[in-house]
């Protein structure tokens, strides 16, 4: 356990979107926090994966290892995203092959040594930062397919009062029994399949009876990102998501409620 601050900024899934990362970090500095955490998947989807790393270092961002980081760091064959649909896997592989080929050896070494989880104790609350779930880096825990008693079991088995996770690409939070809380902090890498082009990070504030969670929208130069994706030969489908806010790929993994909210 580590002695830790009381106001955290957390985000997941940068997916090489260094422009959104810059904008989010500027916002975080403006608001003032005690520490900044990234819950994994630094590269993927977007252009120029190496541009993310200096920003993280300059702002002392502490990172958890996501499935993508494990894959790229260890030069595995695929991203271990956990998709089961052939079309989802087709696009995931294009994204992964590009990201692996454009991540330097130095940055691969950095990704390789990241921890699978970080534990903090803040105001007597045990806080667990992980990527997918406390028990599996690439587990999808969706808002509409997670029962309260399941989330309580995850917390109990992980000896945690507050679990902060990401991986699914869509933020949400659930207040549980005995003051426990499960929070998906969202991602900076791509919009949330709601037709809005901004991305999200999360402020978590400790102190007092409740843990306060605030989801913060981040506006950034999405048009420039999409142009750079095009210049790098990344799929038109990926660019469309950045330009429109609607997911065009990796859709089959969505439960019906989350799928229904999207356009495709």
């Amino acid at each position: 356990m580590t002695a830790a601050p009381t106001r955290l900024a957390c985000f997941g899934g940068i997916y090489s979107n260094y422009l959104a990362l810059e904008a989010a970090l500027a916002d975080v500095r403006r608001r003032g926090v005690d520490a900044v955490y990234c819950l994994g998947d630094l590269g993927a989807f977007g252009p120029h994966p190496d541009r993310v790393f200096p920003l993280l270092a300059d702002h002392d961002v502490v990172c958890v290892q996501g499935n993508y980081d494990d894959s790229v760091g260890n030069e595995l064959d695929d991203c271990q995203c956990g998709y089961v649909d052939p079309q989802d896997n087709h696009f995931a592989q294009i994204s992964y092959d590009y990201t692996l080929a454009h991540t330097s050896a130095e940055h691969r070494a950095y990704l390789r040594q990241l921890p699978a989880e970080i534990r903090l104790e803040i105001d007597s609350r045990r806080v667990l930062l992980c990527h997918g779930s406390p028990r599996r880096t690439n587990e999808f825990v969706w808002e509409s397919t997670a029962s309260d008693h399941f989330l309580e079991r995850l917390c109990r088995e992980a000896d945690a009062d507050v679990v902060l996770a990401t991986h699914t690409g869509i933020k949400w939070q659930r207040q549980l029994a005995e003051g426990r809380q499960f929070v998906n902090v969202g991602v900076l890498g791509r919009p949330e399949n709601d037709g809005r082009r901004n991305v999200w990070y999360t402020l978590v504030e400790f102190g007092g009876d409740q843990v306060q969670v605030e989801f913060v929208p981040v506006e950034y130069d999405f048009a420039r990102l999409a142009r750079e994706m095009a210049d790098e030969g990344l799929p038109a489908e990926f660019q469309e998501t950045i330009r429109t806010g609607w997911w065009t790929t990796c859709l089959e993994i969505l439960p019906v409620k989350e799928r229904r909210r999207g356009a495709f």
């Binding site: 499935n67 956990g82 998709y83 089961v84 649909d85 599996r136 690439n138 999808f140 993994i253 969505l254």
Partner: peptide, 20 residues
């Protein structure tokens, strides 16, 4: 693998299956 579950409940498996 996972032949009965919904796609959204897929457990990815692989190297990232369990945190170390």
């Amino acid at each position: 693998g996972a032949i009965c579950s919904n796609p959204s409940a897929a457990s990815g498996g692989g190297h990232a299956a369990r945190p170390t």
